[in-house]
């Protein structure tokens, strides 16, 4: 079964995954993923629980390094450079490839510091106030918080917190933003706001989003990758990857069809 499905596109590739296998200790969680992520597009990773979609996402900015025993085989090319080459610094990778997490996790600092901190540690030189304002505007949060920048980020509502986290990621000027089920802890209205924001951000950034919510994938993404756990060795694999419209309306793979039509299981 081919796990390689790169849709035809004229755009450039932001990331190129070549035969990627992810391990936790001796357990192989994901096997043989080949995937080219389109630049300045939203790509959604969907699939049932345990299919490895989050693992793949976290391997894209080497967050997997932080899990004891976590390791990746294969190549993930970012501007022609393999992210897992020994001379690559994971710290710098994460600055270029930002991340937004499942639960909003602002730092217990002021809203201003939440944004400025990442910039500071990464050596940003320039007008910090401007950077903070611009990042908050980009995250569509400026109007709501401009009068209380010195208040704790923890005082915001869930949706606002998540947008603060997105603003925080933007401030380090990444090229790619990874979102790991960013709306799973939010109510529908906050979810919609985030989706609108994504459509705005994709003009400047490549976005990869993991979601459980198929409607969200269908609504918000340009491309969709469907993962499924291979029951024989419990390793996740990429089943189908293509333009969202095509994948949802005319899946090539029987398993994809089962999943999107709800016959999964």
């Amino acid at each position: 079964m081919s796990t390689n499905g790169t849709p035809t596109s004229n755009g450039k590739y932001a990331l190129d995954l070549q035969d990627v296998h992810c391990y936790y200790g001796s357990f192989r969680a994901v096997k043989g993923v080949n995937l080219k992520l389109q630049e300045k597009k939203i790509t959604a990773f969907i699939g049932p629980s345990g299919c490895g979609k989050s693992t793949v996402l976290r391997s894209l900015n080497r967050m997997n390094d932080l899990i004891p025993g976590g390791r990746v085989e294969g190549r993930i090319l970012f501007r022609g450079k393999n992210l897992y080459d020994p001379d690559v610094d994971p710290v710098e990778v994460r600055r270029r490839i930002g991340m937004v997490f499942q639960k909003p996790n602002p730092f217990p600092k002021s809203i201003y510091d939440n944004i400025a901190w990442g910039a500071k540690i990464n050596g940003f030189k320039g007008n910090m106030k401007e950077l903070v304002e611009q990042s908050l505007r980009s995250a569509a949060l400026w109007e709501e918080v401009k009068d209380k920048l010195d208040q704790s980020g923890l005082g915001l509502s869930g949706g606002q917190q998540q947008r603060l986290c997105i603003a925080r990621a933007i401030a380090t000027q990444p090229e790619i933003i990874l979102m790991d089920e960013p709306c799973s802890a939010l109510d529908p209205i906050a979810t919609l706001k985030i989706e609108d924001l994504m459509r705005e951000l994709v003009k400047n950034y490549t976005i990869v989003i993991v979601t459980h919510n198929m409607q969200q994938a269908a609504r918000a993404s340009d491309y969709t990758a469907y993962y499924l756990m291979d029951k024989s060795d419990r390793a996740g694999e990429l089943v189908e990857y293509g333009e969202t419209d095509q994948l949802f309306t005319n899946p090539k793979d029987k398993r994809t069809e089962d999943y999107i039509t709800g016959r999964f299981g």
């Binding site: 990464n122 320039g126 951000l201 003009k203 400047n204």
Partner: peptide
């Protein structure tokens, strides 16, 4: 929105050799 102001207008992150030094310092 963000296209209206280019990041370089308000400041920049270290690049190239600067970046290398910067990262080295942090790691040290």
């Amino acid at each position: 929105m963000s296209q209206e102001t280019q990041p370089s207008d308000i400041g920049q992150y270290p690049e190239g050799d600067n970046l290398k030094h910067f990262i080295e310092n942090r790691k040290r």
